[in-house]
Amino acid sequence: MAVVTFMRVVGAAIICLLISAACGNQTSSQVVYRRHVVTIAGSTSVMPFTEKLAEHFMIEHPNFIINVQSGGSTAGIQACLNRTVDIGMSSRELKHEEKSLTEIIICYDGIAVIVNPENPIRALSLQQIRDIFAGVLTNWKALGWIDRRIDAVTREEGSGTRSAFEELVMHGAAIDDGIMVQDSNGSVKEVVATDPYAIGYVSLGMVDTRVVALHVDYVRPSVETILARQYKIVRPFLYLINGTPSGPAQQFITYVLSKDGQKILEREGLIPVYAKK
């Protein structure tokens, strides 16, 4: 008998689920509850900041739901082209065939080259950084530290930070195959924070006390040096829209570009749009 009851319960549960599935579809199309849903996907570099902006935005607008997904710049651009998301996030410039999308620069971000705090080196030239990632320089001894292999960490293919780094630092030289690969800003930072002999690159906004951002060509990476156009490894953070955005999406973008939104970004170590003109 227990089994019969069990089967009945399972059956009932399945029916309930099917009904709820059907209802779920309806509510999203008819907007019965007046919930505005905005879906955003793309660059892992932009994601944490969008998440933060969304948190603040949703406090002020409780009837909004902002779904933020990471996935990488390329995925964000594609999703936006297919219209599977309202807003795409990218941390690299659009390629020629992607230019049908509208770009909205929400802020600028520096890419910091980071090492472990135990590492005494505090400055490198752009050429030295290029040599490390091209696999030419492989030992810290050549840079005046101990005789130990350099554990360089790069990002994976498709990452906006990687393509910005390739363009701004590597100048077309290939990143060596023997270099470690991690798939997000956070995991690159985590490797550098735990391995004294590591070197990597992350969004400047991610730098905290667990890692040290190197001076590049004698310039300290900071908001000031970027604004003064001295620190050169800078890329824009973009929101992408396909055609005219939906009302709720437009409202969120307006919020991001507003003084409040830009303040939040500034507090996170990014360079607001109005500052860099």
């Binding site: 990488g72 995925a75 293919e157 498709g158």
Partner: peptide
């Protein structure tokens, strides 16, 4: 002692990002 990438990690590292031929 060298790092390496397996078939499985190649898929998982890049799937979320990839589009088109990638």
């Amino acid at each position: 002692l060298d790092p390496l990438r397996t078939l499985t990690s190649n898929i998982a590292l890049e799937l979320a990002y990839a589009s088109g031929d990638h």
